[in-house]
Design a protein around this nucleic acid. Structure first.
Lengths: 228, 228
DNA sequence: ATTACTATCTCACGAGTAC
DNA sequence: TGTACTCGTGAGATAGTAA
């Protein structure tokens, strides 16, 4: 089958824009060349080739030439367009992390239960997290990179506070799914973990609810808003 | 400005489809090559160039390489896509005829008033046409071609009939706009006009309603349903 | 002014292959 | 298995120009 050449896409699209689908539109190769940012000669060749392939028809009345897109031409560019469309639209807006559950340091439970955090969790997340965080060692450096990417997105901000003795840093929360459980991936202003570890909180005990244990492989899916 | 090369469109779209917008996706140049129907070498070059232009990032862990689309890459393909989209969508689904009003042969009035036609006009068009058709001499052969195109579309069919003495052919009607007046372009099974003349009917006297007269330039716009 | 030919150049692609 | 180099070929672009 004679496929539409990739370099003809913009030319055919330009003809569409000029209304050439249902009417013969008068056009010169030099004006078309400008529109597609190519030379007059290139435009001329495009028209010749599109005509040869049966994607357009041309009609000349002396000097001026009119162009119309055929049904075949319409079908062909629609095909390309729908391929692009489905490629772009099926792209999930999810950042995924994969890693292994490791034992927590026990510190998570302590911090989560502090009133300065708990009150904010209740109002901003809608629940007070189970006492204890789930620590996940990321599997690969692509996920460490993904963590940086996620950090650039706005999350639910839990502000830091002071209890008079010491100060506690902020916590940024990103609603996430682990298996079918709603959780939140948290990024901490201060942490003793290295870059390759992330922490999760949830209303319930994540390990129990998901039947996962230390050493289990885990996949965490964080939905993000596509830009624009 | 570094523009996305046209031949990289499908490659970038393919990466999108694989979910490389928000995550580093492991990919081999040979599998990518197959997906875009090019060689492994071509795929490799595409990735190198896309990376060089800042449309993708790559991350290697020993053997395997992961790819992610950058914000810039996303913006660029979105731009191309929206150009195509607007080109296709702004394309009007209208067939336009331009010509000059000529004097009718007086026959139109006679035929339109025949009961065999009038009854059908009333039920199928919703009105009995003004007695008399408006004849338009098409300006250029592109419009004669457009007439053939229109003929391929289904119109409102007024069937032929016989009054015992003679038979009358069918009439195909296409709702059309002349200035701001609702009219119908009619194609006749039998006509004494040549190809370059079309006829219009309307509820009212078209010449009066549009303040046009013999010799006036006229533009007739017939909406058609886009294929699919 | 047009369109489109010929010549020329660039560069996209694939074959072969190093690593 | 991988990626990506070099190199040869030819498609696609522009310049110049004829009609």
């Amino acid at each position: 089958m004679l496929e539409l050449k990739i370099q003809h896409i913009l030319t055919l699209a330009e003809l569409f824009a000029k209304g050439a689908r249902y009417n013969f539109i008068p056009i010169t190769t030099s004006s078309l060349g400008k529109s597609i940012r190519k030379s007059q000669q290139a435009a001329s060749k495009h028209l010749l080739e599109l005509e040869e392939s049966g994607y357009i028809e041309r009609l000349r009345s002396g000097q001026k030439v009119s162009v119309r897109i055929t049904t075949k031409g319409h079908a062909e560019i629609s095909k390309i367009f729908s391929i692009l469309k489905s490629d772009l639209e099926t792209s999930p807006s999810i950042i995924e992390f994969k890693g292994t559950i490791i034992s927590g340091m026990g510190e998570g439970a302590y911090y989560m239960s502090l009133k300065g955090y708990a009150k904010q969790f209740k109002t901003k997340l809608g629940y007070i997290p189970f006492a204890g965080t789930l620590n996940v060692k990321l599997k690969d450096k692509e996920f460490i990179e993904a963590k940086r990417t996620l950090d650039a997105y706005p999350g639910i901000m839990i502000n830091g506070f002071s209890d008079g003795k010491r100060t506690y840093g902020w916590v940024k929360c990103y609603p996430a799914r682990v298996n079918n459980l709603d959780t939140a991936l948290i990024l901490l202003e201060r942490t003793h973990h290295d870059d390759s570890v992330i922490e999760l909180i949830s209303k319930d005990n994540i390990k129990k609810a998901t039947k996962l244990s230390i050493g289990s492989q885990i996949s965490i899916r964080v939905p993000v808003k596509p830009i624009q």
